[in-house]
Design a protein around this nucleic acid. Structure first.
Ligand SMILES: [Mn+2]
Ligand SMILES: [Mn+2]
Ligand SMILES: [Zn+2]
Ligand SMILES: [Zn+2]
Lengths: 137, 137
DNA sequence: ATGCAAATGCAACAATGTTGCGTTTGTTAA
DNA sequence: TTAACAAACGCAACATTGTTGCATTTGCAT
């Protein structure tokens, strides 16, 4: 709710650009691409946006994921993640029609058994198909 | 075994470049990045390699996946995929130490229950950790 | 109000991927 | 074997994405 507090807690200065970015991401379950955000904040410098997203990622405010087309996207971390290493191992859903990417925090991911010698540290599950809007259900 | 036949079956002409690429990929269960292959075949033009990999993907000879660092990689399709749409929904494992990516065809991926309205068409499961060589087991 | 570190804007660059086009090559059929 | 044609290739040019260095501005603590 109070983004200024959240930023200061993470040791980040409160700036208009940062407030804009966190507001947009926090008010959505969607993962935004860099160019999404770029066109949303056209007056903000490209590099500044890269740095804001990097800082937010390091601070555990957002997580970065790849969509089905190889575009990197950013979504808010709902449950606050420990700095640096995020628990962003929930499911992401990519709509083939509207190309939106959804964070599906509620879908349970079963534990997978690894072959001999392979030690798993985490996983990314990306499902593609048709979203609630596009499936025409 | 006979790559010339395999290429002709898919309507692709047999060229030295294509034979080189398919040989390397087929003799490994690793997924190679574009730059991996580029340095392996330094005399081949960059663009030609892009086009070969695209043609192989369309023909169902290889599948393209993103690794944990956002690098696109290519691996051979072991079970022949129907042209265009591949059944590349097996697990991929990315080693944090040596950065190799393994196709784990044998790991079973359980079916996930989607929320209301979301229709799943396929999934990518990417696990990261330490591989058999790097886990020191 | 002042000072300083942090954040920003800008330019330059690197890596990755795409497109157009002229040339070469693989395949088919005479 | 050769001739002809479509496909594949090499090269140049360009687009997009992401990174780095540096001078300037701004947030925040004193
Ligand atoms: Mn997410
Ligand atoms: Mn694979
Ligand atoms: Zn959709
Ligand atoms: Zn390894």
């Amino acid at each position: 709710m109070d983004y200024m507090l959240q930023l200061r807690e993470k040791g980040l200065k409160v700036t208009p650009s940062r407030l804009n970015v966190i507001k947009v991401l926090d008010s959505s379950h969607l993962a935004y691409s860099h160019s999404d955000l770029e066109s949303l904040f056209s007056k903000m410098d490209r590099v500044t946006l890269y740095r804001i997203l990097k800082d937010f990622e390091d601070a555990g405010i957002v997580h970065k994921i790849m969509d089905i087309d190889g575009v990197t996207r950013f979504a808010i971390c709902k449950s606050t993640c420990p700095d640096g290493h995020h628990t962003d191992d929930h499911v992401h859903f990519n709509c083939k029609a509207c190309h939106k990417m959804f964070c599906l925090e509620k879908v349970q991911v079963p534990h997978l058994k690894m072959p001999q010698g392979f030690k798993a540290m985490g996983l990314h599950t990306l499902i593609y198909g048709l979203c609630e809007n596009c499936s025409g259900a």
